[in-house]
Design a protein around this nucleic acid. Sequence first.
DNA 1: ACCATACTGTCAGATTCTGGCAGTAGCCTC
DNA 2: GAGGCTACTGCCAGAATCTGACAGTATGGT
Lengths: 229, 229
Amino acid sequence: MSRSERLLDLIQCLRRHRRPVSGQLLADELGISIRTLYRDIATLQGQGAPIEGEAGLGYVLKPGFMLPPLMFTDEEIEAIVLGSRWVAKQPDQRLSAAAANALAKIAAVLPDDLREDLDASTLLVGPAMTAIEDIDLGTVRQAIRNERKLGFLYRDAGGAASQRVVWPFALGFFDKVRVVVAWCEMRQDFRHFRTDRISGLDAINARYPRRRQALLKEWRATLDKPSGS
Amino acid sequence: MSRSERLLDLIQCLRRHRRPVSGQLLADELGISIRTLYRDIATLQGQGAPIEGEAGLGYVLKPGFMLPPLMFTDEEIEAIVLGSRWVAKQPDQRLSAAAANALAKIAAVLPDDLREDLDASTLLVGPAMTAIEDIDLGTVRQAIRNERKLGFLYRDAGGAASQRVVWPFALGFFDKVRVVVAWCEMRQDFRHFRTDRISGLDAINARYPRRRQALLKEWRATLDKPSGS
DNA sequence: ACCATACTGTCAGATTCTGGCAGTAGCCTC
DNA sequence: GAGGCTACTGCCAGAATCTGACAGTATGGT
């Protein structure tokens, strides 16, 4: 196995163990000596991988994605840049910042002439969206990622308000509004909630009893067959 | 210099020469032997780089972007995925396909568990936009990239129609409409044209006499100071 | 026919990588 | 504080890989 492949393997090994793991163990899994492992770790850190080692504990990889060398066509990179610019204009602050950072990272590793092409890329998106919700979408995304319940006050189209506890598993971005897709404990069914009608958002520190992938799949199935109700 | 750095350098060398360039010349530029160059080319091709060699001519790199290994945070990759999904729903067929391809390329190189995360990514975008223009945006993007003039019939907000020849340099994506930003030969000024009011699009095979970066910069300047008219 | 070029196989020497050893330092438990 | 576990560094010899040179084949253009 070539060294560059081994480095990707190492990343994957680190990903599997969520808890700190000793260098010796990693070296055994990869079939290399501990000395070489230290060298590999140093190389990866040099490439920007967020690996942290602490004496007495072991190594942890902060969550993230490592992409190997990759080739994109002009149009593919234009699509990625345009898409990221769109996300950067979304009202979700953290996500918007992440999009800007991703673009900056890509630009940083490009040779000068390509970076100019990218900066002067001629696909633009309209003005930044103004937030119409007053809740923090970051909280919602975090609840989805961690499969945690959310509580809030919802005011429906008719104006009637009700207190809800839901299992959120997706966030939809439409032209003007954002929509939380979730299982509603009150209705015992899938519901979507416009973020601008949500108030008093409360991140409940309780895991919901299903996997979000499973919920997503079931919900998609309900979309395929037009509901009879 | 390490081998992996040299491979990136090779890509850049190939990019500089637009015309086919002989292996011997590339080897000289990189300070390596021709034999090693052939090996490096083979390695890059193995990694998916679109390098083509023809006996009697030399090597050409088909236009595209090579990204070195790169690390993204969870949120950054979520932003890229969400953005690409949005682009994939745009009515511009080629760009939409490019976004889908870019996502597929990224997914292809990810280990299985990460690919699932990506597939099951819980940020969604609304339904595909229906094209409200009946012109091919690909033609517009190509004219922009190649700095070529465009001719078309434009029907303004009042309904009055006029034949235009413009120097297009940017394409704006708004909620519902797409807008071509260009220098209008008739008005001798910057104008933007809603794509749904354009008909009879004609890609004129004549270069316009300015650089699109310069036009873009000037146009941006006119936006900063509110026009007095 | 001739030239320029891409491409492959082989092999010895140069270069790099690797594993083991010795040693330092930080964190945790007792 | 003592002891155990661990990260991390420098060094060196052997293993593995890379490199350059040469010889040879194939292909496209003139």
